[in-house]
Nucleic acid binder design. Structure first.
Length: 476
RNA sequence: UCCUCUUUAGCUCAGUUGGUUAGAGCAUCUGACUGUUAAUCAGAGGGUCCUUAGUUCGAGCCUAAGAAGAGGAGCCA
């Protein structure tokens, strides 16, 4: 007698006694249970001897019920599966009332399943997506570990609000109705839990830089929080970010690292998660069929993934990109909502989409952006007007990676902070890195959920994280 | 935050010019059948038409305010 997962049993040779526990997906003709235990997309068919099973037990074999089955693994008589279990004993571990169980053996809208997020991994699509999410997490740690990086845990609660990456969630234990006030009538944060105003982190980058400047190669992979009121299919209030930071590496090295990293993790899932990817490939193809011809992608999901692993990302400077956009058809015919007229304009998502989806038709790395549209910590180029920043743009997703070489010169950094009114005392420790043994260093940030979206072909970011947090929604 | 659309049975959705008792498919229940693959066939039950206020003899349908969801924009990862 063996106790194995469905994934293992489906690979076993027939004619042996087995036992299995799982959840009923469907029960057909009082005889055929499609059983799933989460170990694989596939179900194992369990054939019940309905003539010798009590009617009471048969009635309790319903969609969603947890059951324990003993029987013999045999070659299947029917089509559609190679092996099945002839049931000798079945025990109902947990009933599932068919009148109220929300997950029916039929198509559900993703909106409906989002409201039942605690049950949605009982569907093929979400179990496949979440297995891939897990595999991608592992592939990320494996890549960095194999390449000599240390995994660093940056703080979730942060005391600095100078990172400039967006609106922050305040962390406070003060009485919200009766906060202690200063003599000037302001909220007295010195009475707060940490003796100062604190927030949830928007990025671990600045702390990661401190460790890169001693441990050499580090990365963070953890939750980050943005209180932006953004309602799109590409933004979450709580999301997971990967941020490598490397000492003695310049922008070109940073681009090499990001590209190699992306190719590596995608290769990993192509190799290890073929079944789930094939299912999602088919799902996406079915979804594409419902779209008008013009909006359909000319590549399938797996083709897109292989395209990334097999082709070099196109590297284009901001200045070159502006030239391409200025001379593009939609710009000349004024089809863009924002017409590109001169160097220095910020690129809108319509422009990024044009470059990636129409012009180059592959992932694009844009670099050397105008200094005034990028963050204060980015390395100023010798031209005095651009910074060593890079964004990696992916078809259908937009910005996947944002990174830069960091400004390592103390005087230049101080000057930049002064212009932007960033108080030096807030970031005294960050400036110390430039005072004591400063060096060229670089890093990037990658939104994990955007990677999962690309890898699974899901089009809404709320469907690639277990319990999405978005404005007006923190259920579960 | 802005623009557009949506909200009717458990789910997905129809609902004509404002007019009697609001419909379909799937699901559920009952029965039949049994090597089925989202089984099939017959029957039954199931409704705060998102909320509030208004117009009207009469509102699922018209008006106003609000709520929630989706798509797009901005911001970004």
């Amino acid at each position: 007698m063996t106790s194995k997962t469905v994934a293992q049993l489906l690979k076993e040779t027939p004619l042996q006694e087995v036992e299995i526990k799982g959840w009923v997906r469907t029960f057909r003709a009082k005889r055929f249970i499609a059983l799933n235990d989460g170990s694989t997309l596939n179900n194992i068919q369990c054939v019940v001897d309905f003539e010798n099973t009590p009617e009471d037990t048969l009635k309790r074999i319903t969609t969603g019920a947890a059951v324990a089955i003993k029987g013999e693994l045999v070659e299947s008589q029917g089509k559609g599966q190679s092996v099945e279990i002839v049931v000798s004993a079945i025990e109902i571990l947990g009933d599932s009332d068919p009148e109220t169980y929300p997950i029916q053996p039929k198509k559900h809208s993703f909106e409906f399943l989002r409201e039942n997020a605690h049950l949605r991994t009982r569907t093929n699509t979400f179990s496949a997506v979440m297995r891939l999410r897990s595999a991608l997490s592992f592939a990320i740690h494996k890549y960095f570990n194999d390449n000599g990086f240390y995994y660093m845990h940056t703080p979730i609660i942060t005391g600095s609000d100078a990172e400039g990456a967006g609106e922050m969630f305040r962390v406070s234990t003060l009485d919200q109705k009766n906060p202690p006030l200063t003599e000037a009538g302001e909220i007295d944060h010195s009475k707060n839990f940490f003796g100062k105003d604190t927030n949830l982190t928007v990025s671990g980058q600045l702390e990661a830089e401190t460790y890169a400047m001693s441990l050499g190669k580090v990365y963070t992979f953890g939750p980050t929080f943005r209180a932006e009121n953004s309602n799109t299919s590409r933004h979450l209030s709580e999301f997971w970010m990967i941020e490598p930071e490397v000492a003695f590496m310049d922008l070109a090295g940073n681009m090499d690292l990001a590209e190699d990293f992306m190719k590596s993790v995608i290769s990993y899932i192509l190799e290890h998660n073929a079944e789930d990817l094939e299912f999602l490939d088919k799902r996406l193809a079915d979804e594409e069929k419902t779209k008008p011809q013009a909006q359909r992608s000319d590549m399938s999901l797996i083709e897109k993934l292989k395209f990334v692993t097999e082709n070099n990302f196109k590297r284009v400077s901001y200045t070159e990109a502006i030239d391409i956009l200025k001379n593009s058809k939609p710009n000349k015919k004024k089809k863009f909502n924002y017409i590109i007229e001169e160097w220095g304009a910020d690129l809108q998502s319509e422009h990024e989409r044009f470059l990636v989806e129409k012009h180059f038709k592959c992932p694009v790395i844009l670099f050397d952006y105008p200094a005034n549209i990028k963050a204060f910590y980015m390395r100023l180029n010798e031209d005095g007007k651009t910074v060593r920043a890079m964004d990696i743009l992916f078809p259908g997703i937009g910005e996947m990676v944002g990174g830069s070489q960091r400004e390592e010169r103390l005087d230049v950094l101080k000057e930049k902070m002064a212009v932007l009114n960033i108080p030096e005392e807030e970031l005294w420790w960050y400036l110390d890195l430039r005072k004591y043994g400063t060096a060229v260093h670089s890093g990037f940030g990658l939104g994990f959920e955007r990677l999962v979206m690309f890898a699974t072909g899901m089009s809404n970011i709320r469907d690639v994280i277990p319990y999405p947090r978005t404005p007006q929604n923190a259920e579960f």
